[in-house]
Amino acid sequence: MHEVLFYLFAAMTLLPAVMLVCSRNTVNAAMLMIVSFVGTAALFAMLQAYLLSVLQIMVYAGAVVVLFLFIIMLLDAGRIKSFKGRIKQIIVPLAFFVALSILPVLAILSGRGGEAQVGEAVAPASSAEQFGLLLFTKYQLPFELTGFLLLAAMVGVIFISRRNVSALPKSEGKE
């Protein structure tokens, strides 16, 4: 049962990712990204990291994909050019893909990464309490810095996305 679920969720993560890379329509790509993120969240849940699974769905499948869709529709760049006449440009990425995917898989399967382990130990990551304890004790400084980072990102986004950034000194007096 566990194995069937694992392979189902792994396929749910990987197949939409491949289809995303090959998709012509950007909106379809965003939808496929949702499926891939939900598959990853299911894999997190199988690893008993339930809080991270919920966060993954809320942040990625919720906020990030909605932001992507909003930008795609704002830019009206849904239709993009196809791959015609670009065989030469596919070869190098394909070589990188094969190297990047085959080598780790071979290394893992050859047993150099240690023998296959079976997760019998308890999984403390399942509770939000553990996260809270660590975030406010050991990782207090990164936690605060993350808050500052989010503030900086928000201010930066508001500044970047306003109109007439280049014509700022002139337009300021009129507005």
């Binding site: 993560t13 995917s101 898989v105 296959a116």
Partner: peptide, 25 residues
């Protein structure tokens, strides 16, 4: 169960290389 660490690592490495492939392609 028979699903070990290696299975998850293979999925992760495949997902990473698919993403890298997409960025280059």
């Amino acid at each position: 169960f028979a699903i070990a660490l290696n299975h998850y690592l293979i999925v992760a490495s495949l997902l990473f290389s698919i993403g890298f492939f997409g960025v280059m392609l």
